[in-house]
Each structure stands twice: as structure tokens, then as C-alpha cells.
């Protein structure tokens, strides 16, 4: 065990480097995925058949083919067609488009789930379509979509563990190096806990976003109230 700890100490720079790649891919990938999700989610609701059809084809393509296939598509196939890109770029594109396509369905479904009365009321108040979306529909849909987007975010984080396939030195590759220096259970136990902690941090952040989004709709306490320490009965007291 002592040997393991000193080997771990020696491997810290490697683990941090690998974690840096994992976090970079997660952050850039999910940023791209979010943009893709919103754009294609809205396009999939378009009344114009061409726009809607285009969105559906892209969404079904990236949902229906495997993530690994898409990773290799960007890493092996596009360079052969003349588009050179770094492995990081290939990874960000694959994660962004794959999870973005799943996210587009979440965005589309959440907007559709906003009660019809809200749409009718904003028509009755003669709000413009942009105004209606921005002030009435999106704030409510946003609160609905956060839990599903959180699931996708965690999946994206876990999905980055395959970038070793395209020569990137991520946390999983670093763990395999650590395994050789120490032993299997120590290295992978340590690594799984790291991934778990990363996923947990993301979940906490998304939960905070959800509390805020709901509070802005007039449901539940504000984020500041939710985070503050107080006597236990303050929360549980229901008159």
C-alpha cells in the first residue's frame, strides 16, 4: 500500500494531465452539444418541411449510429476526404454532435410539453413569436429539460473515456499507466472515484440550475435560500 501511494504520488502529474484532457473534452463537447441541441431542437419544430426534415435527418443520423463510429468518422474518414483535424477537435465534434442530437430531442420534447394554455394565453395577449418564446415558453421548457440534460452531461463525461481509441491521453489512459506502476484495484478504484466525483460535481451544478430555473417560475425556494444553512425545522415546517 505504501509503495502504491508513492507510485500514485509520482504519477500525479500524469493523472492531472489526463484529467485535464477529460475535463477539456467534457466542457467543449457539452458546450457544442448545447448549441447543437438548441438549434436542432428548434429546427425540428419548424413548420417548414425542408427545415424540419433536415433537422430530423441530422438528429436521427447522430442518434442512430454509434458514438465510436462517429469518433472514427471524424478521426479517420474526414482527413482522407481532405479535412485534417487534431484528435481533440475530432473528439469535441463527435461528442458535441452525438450528445447534441440526443439533446435536440430533449429540447423539442420540453418545448412541446409546455401546457397549451400558455401558448394560447400569449397569443391572446398578442405577444410576438420571439417575445412569446423568450419570455413565456423557454423559461418553462428550460426547467423541464434540465434533469434530462444533466443525464446527457453525465453520459458525455463517461463517453469521453473512449478517446484513448484516437490517441488522446485522457484520464482512462493515465489510469492504465498507473495500473502498471501500482496494481489493478488501487489504480482503477482511484480512477473510478475520480470519475464519480467529477460526475457528482456536474450533478450538483445542474441541480442548482434547476432550483434557480424553478424559482424564477415562482416554484420553490431561491438558490440562495436552498444553499443557506438553517435550523432543520425551517425547511420541514409545512403549515
Amino acid at each position: 500500500m505504501n509503495d502504491d501511494l508513492s507510485a500514485l504520488w509520482a504519477a500525479i502529474p500524469q493523472v492531472l494531465e489526463g484529467m485535464g484532457i477529460t475535463v477539456t473534452l467534457t466542457v467543449l463537447g457539452s458546450a457544442l452539444a448545447f448549441v447543437v441541441a438548441v438549434v436542432f431542437g428548434l429546427m425540428a419544430r419548424s413548420r417548414t418541411l425542408v427545415v424540419r426534415g433536415f433537422a430530423r435527418v441530422v438528429i436521427e443520423f447522430f442518434r442512430g449510429t454509434s458514438l465510436v463510429v462517429q469518433l472514427y468518422l471524424f478521426f479517420f474518414v474526414l482527413p482522407q476526404l481532405g479535412w485534417e483535424m487534431s484528435p481533440i477537435t475530432a473528439g469535441v465534434l463527435a461528442f458535441g454532435l452525438n450528445y447534441g442530437a440526443y439533446g435536440a430531442e430533449v429540447v423539442r420534447g420540453s418545448i412541446a410539453a409546455v401546457p397549451a394554455g400558455q401558448w394560447e394565453a400569449s397569443t391572446a395577449l398578442s405577444l410576438s413569436p420571439v417575445h412569446r418564446m423568450r419570455r413565456i415558453i423557454i423559461p418553462q421548457a428550460w426547467a423541464l429539460m434540465i434533469p434530462s440534460l444533466n443525464n446527457l452531461l453525465i453520459q458525455l463525461l463517461k463517453g469521453t473515456a473512449i478517446v484513448g481509441f484516437i490517441t488522446l491521453f485522457d484520464l482512462t489512459v493515465a489510469l492504465d499507466k498507473l495500473r502498471i506502476a501500482t496494481d489493478l484495484f488501487f489504480a482503477y478504484g482511484f480512477g473510478l472515484v475520480l470519475y464519480f466525483v467529477l460526475a457528482y460535481i456536474l450533478t450538483l451544478g445542474m441541480n442548482a440550475l434547476e432550483v434557480r430555473a424553478k424559482h424564477r417560475l415562482g416554484q420553490g425556494e431561491s438558490l440562495r435560500e436552498a444553499l443557506s444553512f438553517r435550523t432543520p425545522d425551517a425547511r420541514g415546517s409545512v403549515a
Binding site: 473515456a161 489493478l184 480512477g191 470519475y195 460526475a199
Partner: peptide, 18 residues
Amino acid sequence: NFIRMTPIVVQLVFAYFA
């Protein structure tokens, strides 16, 4: 929750060697 929130690839490699 632990199994759900950690990557299946890491679990595969771990089980493969274990």
C-alpha cells in the same frame, strides 16, 4: 449510483484484468 456514474469503458478494462 457508483456504477451508473462511472464510465463503462473503465469498468470493462477493470473487469478484464480482474
